Simulated assay, not measured.
Amino acid sequence: MNYKTLDPCKTYLITGAAGFIGYYLSRKLLEQGCKVIGIDNINDYYDVNLKYTRLNQLERYEKFTFIKEDISNKEIVMIIFKEYKPNVVVNLAAQAGVRYSIENPDVYIQSNIIGFYNILEACRYNTVEHLVYASSSSVYGANKKVPFKETDFVDNPVSLYASTKKSNELMAHTYSHLYKLPATGLRFFTVYGPLGRPDMAYFGFTDKYFSGEPIKIFNNGDFENDLYRDFTYIDDIVEGIERLIGNPPIGVVQHKIFNIGNNSPEKLMVFIETLEIALSKALNKEVRFEKIFEPIKPGDVPATYASTDLLQEAVNFKPKTSIEEGLQNFANWYVDYYRVK
């Protein structure tokens, strides 16, 4: 199937530009000569040094403009849209993390609900050609039927984070219906890679190893019924977004939702063993994590597994990076970045 490629003459506004996915997407667009306006509030949910490392790399590009602001400030958001007149908006700014939403629900409402509403309003009043926004695989809740399809019932979220993402999908659908705003929601499945988020398990396990601490695995030590995750490498996520950006939905309601996942779930223990092998190669010595097994945490789900048929049909793309390749890239980066031995 034919799909439209990026237009480097357009202006792309990316919220959460100092975040993991936001950084890689911004860099990909800039490499192709696009003008990118990045917004981020640089919050301290995790190590801000990583965010500044990403930003420093983006600021090498002449066509990158960074604005340190919070999308929950509607007045500021409206001013930015009016001044820079983005053609395409990619909303990746959000408070991430399933478990953290149990401890600190306020920030999820502020960023994921109010912030997203402000982005929708700004798109409505500024004739944006396409809004692409981050949803999450967490909207599938405790669904047992796999692989997860975009048409599945998703009205039983098991975390506040998932509820906010489901709300985003509903809000975007409404704005598409009322104001003819072309919008595409992306349900990401466990994204990993170099310069990633330290709150993600693979990064945390690596930190623990170098701190001489055991890792906690929340599967009750049940290897037969281990947790399954559809681990998706960052380059695959970015390619999926890039292909969809130039192809806004058409139809009566211009709103579509796509899974972006690896379509190849791995047992958590297999993922951990692969990470041990990758670190062993990066360090040139054997690495084995000390493991503590605990019960599954509230809000966690037993399996994530994406159907990617719709994505393939729309833009002829299916994520393909193996965990062996992806985790080796991460391990090499980690050892180099933190100068560990």
Rank of each mutant, 00 (worst) to 15 (best):
M171H: 08
V287Y: 09
Y305A: 04
E276G: 03
I257E: 07
D152C: 05
R288M: 07
L279W: 08
K82I: 05
F66K: 02
L181S: 04
L6K: 00
A314F: 00
G221W: 06
N284P: 03
M1G: 02
K10A: 14
D235P: 02
D235Y: 02
C123W: 06
I257V: 15
V287M: 13
L25M: 12
E239W: 03
L92F: 03
L131F: 03
E121H: 00
K208M: 07
G33L: 10
S26I: 04
Y161V: 14
D7K: 11
Y228V: 07
S280R: 03
I296C: 10
N2V: 01
Y175A: 10
Y61C: 02
T127Y: 09
R187L: 15
H173T: 09
F258N: 11
V270R: 06
I79T: 08
N2R: 02
F188G: 08
I42R: 07
I39Y: 00
N126C: 05
T5G: 14
R27A: 14
R27G: 12
G97W: 09
G97D: 09
E150N: 10
A183I: 03
D7N: 15
I250M: 07
T190A: 14
F293I: 06
D7P: 05
L170N: 06
E324K: 13
K285A: 05
L30G: 03
D235Q: 10
L50E: 03
T174D: 06
K318V: 12
F205L: 04
I119Y: 01
E290S: 12
H130N: 07
Q328T: 08
G246L: 12
D40N: 04
Q95I: 06
K10H: 12
E59V: 15
R197W: 00
K85M: 10
Y84S: 10
L131S: 00
G33F: 05
Q32H: 11
Y117D: 12
R60M: 14
Y202W: 06
F271R: 01
G246A: 15
S138Q: 11
N73L: 14
L327Y: 09
T184H: 09
N219M: 13
H177N: 12
G19T: 01
V48P: 00
K74Y: 13
I109K: 05
K297L: 15
K341A: 10
G299L: 12
K318E: 13
E313G: 08
A162I: 08
T65W: 04
Y46N: 01
I80D: 06
F20H: 07
T184P: 06
K297D: 07
P295T: 13
L6R: 00
T127R: 10
F81S: 05
I76M: 15
Y117S: 13
D300M: 12
Y209V: 06
L181F: 11
K180M: 13
N43F: 04
S167W: 11
E62Y: 08
N168D: 11
A314N: 00
D155Y: 13
N220H: 13
K51D: 02
